[in-house]
Design a protein around this nucleic acid. Structure first.
Lengths: 190, 190
DNA sequence: GTCTATATTTGGATAGAC
DNA sequence: GTCTATCCAAATATAGAC
């Protein structure tokens, strides 16, 4: 039966819609995504989008999940045989670069930036999954203490948010990563 | 002449409008501020607001300036005779508490959270002024290096954003302040 | 599945009387 | 200064023909 082909075509269109949505967000900001404009950039009518997504919020949801998956896959490509210090450096650097290379994605994933929208439970689960992955990666480096983990998230998210907000396209905070990691692993010594 | 009285009344109304805007933002989020709703909460017509502000963006601008002034004044009440370590602890703690006690204010001041709005040059100047004040305060503690300052802003803003986003009403990141400061001032030692 | 046409809502802003 | 009455634009979403 042709169901598989139909399904594949449908999935391809969904992917194309999401890609266009990201492109639009990069041009005009997350809030600038409109159903007409989005559909127009694909050469289709706004009403056709509703055959693929339940509405605008569903599109944000799909983008949220996609963004989290991209981060998860990025994290999995990191080397793990560098020793604690260099692994942390690579991890932090990858995270900041991930945030800085796509600001709308950063805002969608980590800031509550869209008035009236919050991720659905399923979408939120993808964020939790990422957090758990980070937890496991830190655990492999011997970092299991809750406070140590919280301090790590504060440090990396602080570097990322400063980089994104105050020096996009630059590296003013990115280049502080080594210093930050050395500070982090050297803590609690007198 | 009555001009002074008139002017005072006008200023009072402006203040009342801003206060109502903050209240509305706390209830429904920054994006939830509408001219009708804002005016309604004050018992006036939406069109009357335009006698006091040029429009919605001007209201955001005034809120931005007011928020920055509140932060500046808060910073000036901090003790300065505690020694470097405890002064930094007090400073960081005050900053995180400032952010956590009013989330819309935090979003307005530190995140680009309103689609289509950015502070006017005058409003932005109030943010720059605060940054310069922080610079001076750090300088008094002997911290003048640009990278050290950037690392400090990353650390404190990271703690604040994690606290606000992931544990509002709690103190999960707030209570890491001492650890974070000790880590910060102990850095660069082998 | 995709289109055109349109319903519906919302929100900022203005006109003009009082 | 404040109101009522609108205007205007943008945006989501739906109906129904093809």
């Amino acid at each position: 039966m042709a169901t598989a082909r139909v399904e594949a075509r449908r999935a391809a269109t969904r992917t194309a819609i999401l890609e266009a949505a990201w492109a639009l967000a990069r041009e005009e900001g997350l809030g600038g995504i409109g159903m007409r404009e989005l559909a127009g950039s694909l050469g289709m009518a706004a009403s056709s989008l509703y055959g693929y997504f339940d509405g605008k919020d569903a599109i944000y949801d799909a983008m949220f999940i996609e963004g989290n998956r991209a981060l998860r896959e990025r994290s999995l490509t990191l080397p793990t045989d560098l020793g604690t210090r260099d692994t942390l450096v690579a991890t932090a650097r990858a995270f900041i670069e991930f945030c800085d290379e796509d600001h709308p994605r950063f805002q969608l994933l980590f800031q509550h930036s869209i008035p009236g929208w919050e991720p659905s439970p399923e979408a939120y689960a993808s964020a939790v999954e990422n957090f758990e992955q980070m937890r496991r990666q830190l655990a492999q480096l011997g970092i299991t203490n809750d406070e140590s983990i919280d301090l790590w998230t504060a440090l990396t998210s602080g570097l990322a948010s400063q980089q994104v907000a105050n020096d996009p396209e630059g590296d003013r905070w990115l280049r502080l990563v080594e210093q930050a990691v050395d500070m982090y692993i050297g803590r609690e010594k007198p």
